[in-house]
Amino acid sequence: MKSAVIVFPASNCDRDAKVALEQMTGKTPAMVWHQDRELPDVDLVVLPGGFSYGDYLRCGAMASQSVVMRSVKAHADKGGMVLGVCNGFQVLTESHMLPGALMRNAALKFVCKPVGLEVQETQSGFTRKYENGQRVTFPVAHGEGSYFADEDTLDRLEGENRVAFRYAKGENPNGSARNIAGILSEKRNVLGLMPHPERVVDNALGGTDGRGLFQSLIEALS
């Protein structure tokens, strides 16, 4: 499985993603700068967490207009897989590659802590190595992670089994609608989620619940 990590100015989880991908796939991902027009030939593109362009205007808004995103969209349109974590999820909604928007946390505070999640959908290349309903713990670290979409969109996401991860009961850290933590695109090749699976692939760093996501990708893409 070949992968690339997009680096925007003020991305700060790009190296976490790189280390996780190296550890899990045995291959070093290509680090692609936001001004690059072309993506290398890869199976997976990761949009990492951080504060791209200083969160100016809205989180992810400037990044969604960057040169490299045209290639990322083309990659997804061809069926290529794209994983957006945290700020990467915000970039995906701002790019209209995923529906809805991520708004200021309901309690107005930046939240940085491990949260319990439930894997809601295992029929995807990102989640097939988990059990349906499996409880996992991933860290969150965001100030604007409250998932919002109109009722019709929420119903459609649920009806099409596109809610991949939900905050477990009592764990919703940001007021997200219907406890949504991560969603899939219509073609199920794009996943955006606020919690950080790349930070939990090594016991030395607090857990290994995120390994399932990378193992799923390796299986789906090999």
Binding site: L57, A61, P99, A101, F148, A149
Partner: peptide, 9 residues
């Protein structure tokens, strides 16, 4: 439509 507002919200 393109940048200044996010018309979802």
């Amino acid at each position: 439509e393109k940048l200044l507002a996010n018309t979802v919200i």
